[in-house]
Write a protein that binds this DNA or RNA. Structure first.
Lengths: 126, 126
DNA sequence: TGAGTATATGCTGACAAGGGCATATGTCAA
DNA sequence: TTGACATATGCCCTTGTCAGCATATACTCA
């Protein structure tokens, strides 16, 4: 059994950097025709169309025909499952202070030693 | 150019359902040896080891040798980029009220009509 | 109708994932 | 040491990706 299809779920769909880029562009602009995306991404048109196909398949974008062009818009609600899933881990990286993490934190803010990570947080549990 | 490696970044790593499941289990239990994961996932041991290998490669988990077994723990901080990325879209599914979304929203909170989703939000743009 | 523009689809090739299974590596206990 | 246990690695196989290029489809305007 090979890797799951990119159209299998949102998680697989957004694994592609270009597809995330497309979503970013759409979120910013509200709506965009394929041509505009092609220009912005500097990617061959067929490639863009295919990426849009994947995003369409998982419901992340919607299309609207407008004359001879197709205008795409993001359908952010589909990202909700992802948000919910990741949010479950948020408490872990705000509370938890293990060694590995420390290194990263240190690198991030090199001046303040032993900074208290805002303590008013939702209580642990799950 | 084929699909990016699963070890390329966190987004690719978490595209696999089983790997997400592993993370869930680790988050819940704090620490788990491979054997425990094998039992919980009901997956052949080599498969589990390979998934753990991917998670290790992207830094999502850390290992600790403990006698003849290896105890894994989650390193949730690495999920932060994902959280940040998705969070940028949160306002879209709380503000935006297109038809598709409406159905979902309705289902979610069946009582309150035209609820004002907290308006004090970072101004759009980027 | 026909040319031109905008977008989608089909096919190919290179490549890696992921399960299965065998086996290597490492650790403990007697 | 030897043997049992815990985990990692290697190889095969099937399958699906993604870019590239050519082509089909769809719409618009003369």
């Amino acid at each position: 059994m090979p890797r799951a299809a990119t159209t299998a779920d949102v998680f697989n769909a957004i694994a592609e950097p270009r597809r995330r880029e497309i979503l970013d562009l759409l979120a910013r602009a509200g709506e965009l025709a394929v041509g505009a995306l092609v220009e912005a991404l500097r990617l061959p048109q067929p490639a863009v169309s295919k990426h849009l196909g994947v995003l369409r398949a998982v419901g992340l974008v919607s299309v609207k025909r407008e004359g001879q062009r197709r205008v795409y818009a993001i359908n952010a609600a589909e990202l909700r499952p992802v948000h919910q899933w990741v949010s479950n881990y948020e408490r872990l990286w705000t509370h938890q202070v293990d060694s590995i993490q420390r290194r990263a934190e240190r690198r991030a803010r090199m001046g303040s030693p032993t900074k208290k990570p805002n303590p008013q947080r939702k209580e642990v549990r799950s």
